[in-house]
């Protein structure tokens, strides 16, 4: 008896007998006539990113880089965050006083229960996509493991202006190296967790953080 693998492959080949013997996958033409890069000026791209993130009911503020620590402090205070999850590689100067910092690092990984009991997480990001108002995390510097931004009910994310790209294809191009190299997980976040399962009414906050706040620094 053949294995399932062999049999499925045999079935596939039999089913595609009409495909000429010498045809290579690349021979099937794919016209990529869609937009690859946003040619709008930088400021417009960043402004669009801010606007579209906000449309998802995430709170967005643009701040000068020098004012970032202060802005972070304000946001955390406003939301009464006391126990804050912090990923490896997050700039120390971002951390405000007066909160309990729970660091997740290689020697001591926070348990899911600790993450669940925390008040929120503060991270950077890998990219922002203006076209869709999307924040991209790739488990790299200042972002940490996926669970860190999933279990806490609050996520404060810092996006540097130079991390914002215009269109979706630009994001996938930039992420290619990370995925092909280290194979790190990539997460796209567009607004807080949401559902429209009840009468197609959008409700923010189901399983992920119910509150997403974004600081754009530049």
């Amino acid at each position: 008896m053949s294995t399932a693998r062999e049999e499925i492959l045999r079935r596939v080949r039999r089913a595609t007998r009409d495909v000429p013997e010498g045809e290579r996958p690349e021979d099937v033409a794919v016209e990529r006539g869609y937009r690859k890069e946003d040619d709008a000026p930088r400021e417009e791209v960043v402004a669009r990113f801010a606007e579209r993130v906000a449309e998802y009911k995430a709170e967005v503020r643009r701040v000068k880089e020098a004012d970032l620590p202060e802005a972070i402090g304000e946001n955390l205070k406003e939301r009464a965050i006391e126990r804050l999850i912090v990923p490896p590689g997050l700039p120390e100067e971002w951390l405000p006083g007066g909160v309990e910092v729970l660091r997740d690092d290689e020697e001591r990984r926070l348990t899911n229960e600790e993450l669940d009991r925390s008040d929120g997480a503060l991270t950077g990001c890998s990219l922002g996509i203006a076209q869709t108002g999307t924040i991209v995390l790739d488990a790299g510097e200042a972002q940490g493991r996926r669970a860190l931004t999933l279990l806490p009910d609050y996520h404060l994310c810092v996006v540097r202006e130079d991390q914002v790209v215009g269109l979706v294809p630009e994001a996938f191009a930039r992420l290619e190296e990370t995925v092909k190299g280290e194979g790190r997980a990539v997460t796209f976040i567009s607004g807080p967790s949401a559902t429209s399962d009840i009468e197609l009414n959008r409700v923010e906050g189901v399983h992920g953080p119910r509150t997403l706040e974004v600081l754009i620094s530049g």
């Binding site: 194979g183 997980a185 796209f188």
Partner: peptide, 23 residues
């Protein structure tokens, strides 16, 4: 599908990331 510019969450994973304990 949901008529959004982008859906709230999309996860992409490539095998397992044992060393970083991610996932």
């Amino acid at each position: 599908s949901t008529a959004e510019r982008m859906n709230p969450y999309t996860s992409f994973w490539t095998g397992v990331s044992r060393e970083s304990g991610d996932g």
